[in-house]
Design a protein around this nucleic acid. Structure first.
Lengths: 123, 123
DNA sequence: ATCAGAAATGCTAAGGACTCATAACTGCGG
DNA sequence: CCGCAGTTATGAGTCCTTAGCATTTCTGAT
């Protein structure tokens, strides 16, 4: 049985510029996966509970920072439009897949090693 | 010599509630260290380039979330006042020291393993 | 030509962050 | 015992970023 207050540890990876300005992390990684899965920016955004306006702006900024396109957007057609990942977009998704996959074991072990010290502090 | 665009990877740890609400991370860890070093909340905040108002509010919120005090503040006296870490505050600092210390090697290795794939994407 | 529905963008409201100002506190020197 | 010093504590206005809504634009398919 858990204590009422049982804080836990978490971690996060992201890509940043040389100056430490964040470019792309977990949020966009998952968004890109949703775009890949749905074929639609709109649907992807809805599925992740995000706002279209800001997400669109953020994606634009990210692509500017990276210097290449992550997604290929098309307007018109029977379905109104569609969005697919560019090859580099696919590779970014794969990159984060690999990164988090490789990190998982280390993180589990690390947190296991540390959790006692933490819970000890929390009582 | 570096390429003009050379993004890098970074990582971060934090303590969160069971529901995933962030409680305390790198920023406050460093602030606590500065408090410990200076003996003054005011001086610590200035040394880290933060704003007193928000920092004070944030610390208050953190202590509420944790259920115990991280710092012991005193007003008055020749020096006007002072702030020191509580024993638990000290232990939180030590905890993050240990956490980042232990993680460093794994992270270095992981990022080394992944950096080629990343730079390959970036060209 | 029309339609459908997603992409794209402008505008306003809301909320949070930042700044400044000022009060409150109290150990210590005199 | 009184006042000083300077830090802690808090209120309030301003600014700025973000959220939310409304509307327009686009174009392949029918």
């Amino acid at each position: 049985m858990d204590t009422e207050t049982s804080p836990r540890l978490n971690y996060k990876f992201w890509i940043e510029t040389k100056k430490g300005e964040g470019i792309l992390g977990e949020g966009k990684w998952k968004l890109l996966k949703a775009i890949r899965d749905t074929g639609s920016l709109n649907a992807a955004i809805e599925s992740r509970g995000l706002a279209y306006r800001q997400t669109w702006d953020k994606l634009k900024k990210i692509e500017q920072q990276l210097g290449f396109k992550l997604i290929e957007k098309r307007r018109g057609g029977r379905e109104g439009g569609s969005t697919v990942l560019t090859p580099k977009g696919e590779r970014i998704v794969a990159f984060f897949d690999h990164l988090y996959d490789k990190a998982e074991n280390d993180m589990k072990r690390l947190f296991d090693e540390m959790i006692d010290e933490l819970e000890d502090i929390m009582e």
